[in-house]
């Protein structure tokens, strides 16, 4: 297999021309999204170039401590975005979400990189950073849906929570329907994605590996492992995020502290 053909800067800039099509339609239908699209494109490009420079150094140095620190930073940014987008106050929920992200990453990376792939150095930047990044990127989306559903339903269906809490005398049982709903809402899209992988969607990682010269068989083996890692990582992350958040979300009488949820959730009532 041949290695990947590099793209020169002029070709890359030429690639942006294709954006004329969506921008034309955005303008034609007066969506008001043109400015946002330009900002998003600019941000994406600058962020990716900066990351490329930074990752270049990280890969060159390949230091276990530095690699781990980078993963912790990625987890922190992921937890920050998840908490904000879930309509929860950072002051109370950043820590539990960040902690659950780190724990799920630790478990999944240890299992896949050490036990399954059998790397001599599980902190090797070539594996640790892209795999952590893929788990984090996916986990963030599913965590936002899950946490949002969980707290939104708790506010909307408060009577159900109290009904089970009082009549069964168990907070764990009272939270079960909400946890179930959050898991269902978060994981239905992931199950759908997994079931059509290879048929409709050709995953990015596999495509990247094939473009870089790996054989399709090696690429699909990695892809299967990464899908398993994403599924397990996302589920661990969501369940831990909810369980850890529960410590802050309820008062000493087991009442939901609505004041620590942002307005977005409270107003949905």
């Amino acid at each position: 297999m041949n290695g990947i053909t590099d793209i020169n800067l002029w070709s890359l800039l030429l690639g942006y021309i294709i954006m004329v099509i969506p921008i034309f339609y955005m303008g034609y239908y007066r969506t008001g999204l043109i400015k946002e699209t330009f900002v998003a494109l600019l941000r994406m490009s600058v962020q990716l170039f900066l990351v490329a420079i930074y990752l270049g150094y990280i890969f060159q140095w390949n230091n276990a401590l530095l690699n781990s620190a980078w993963v912790v930073i990625m987890a922190g940014i992921g937890a920050f975005t998840t908490t904000k987008r879930s309509g929860l106050k950072l002051k109370y929920f950043f820590l539990p979400v960040c902690l659950s992200t780190l724990i799920s990453l630790l478990v999944i990376n240890a299992f896949f990189l050490d036990i399954i792939i059998g790397l001599d150095n599980v902190f090797d930047a070539q594996y640790l950073i892209p795999i952590s990044g893929m788990i984090l990127g996916n986990a963030m989306n599913y965590n936002i849906v899950g946490l949002n559903t969980y707290f939104d339903q708790l506010v909307k269906n408060e009577n159900l929570y109290y009904f089970i809490l009082i009549n069964k005398n168990s907070k764990k049982a009272a939270l079960e329907p909400f946890l179930r709903e959050a898991i269902k809402k978060a994981f239905n899209p992931l199950i759908a994605t997994i079931s059509v992988t290879g048929l409709i969607a050709l995953p990015g990682m596999m495509t990247g590996q094939i473009l870089s010269g790996s054989s399709p068989m090696t690429a699909i083996k990695y892809q299967i492992l990464i899908m398993l890692a994403i599924f397990a990582g996302c589920s661990l992350n969501l369940i831990f995020s909810i369980l850890f958040s529960n410590r802050f979300a309820f008062d000493k009488y087991d009442n939901l502290r609505k004041e620590i949820l942002k307005e977005k959730i409270s107003l949905n009532k």
Partner: peptide
Amino acid sequence: SPENMPLIRKKIAWVPQNINLP
């Protein structure tokens, strides 16, 4: 009080007005 809630809940049952049961 928070400490006594599990004991008090053993004594009470509640039928709310409207409830979406799962």
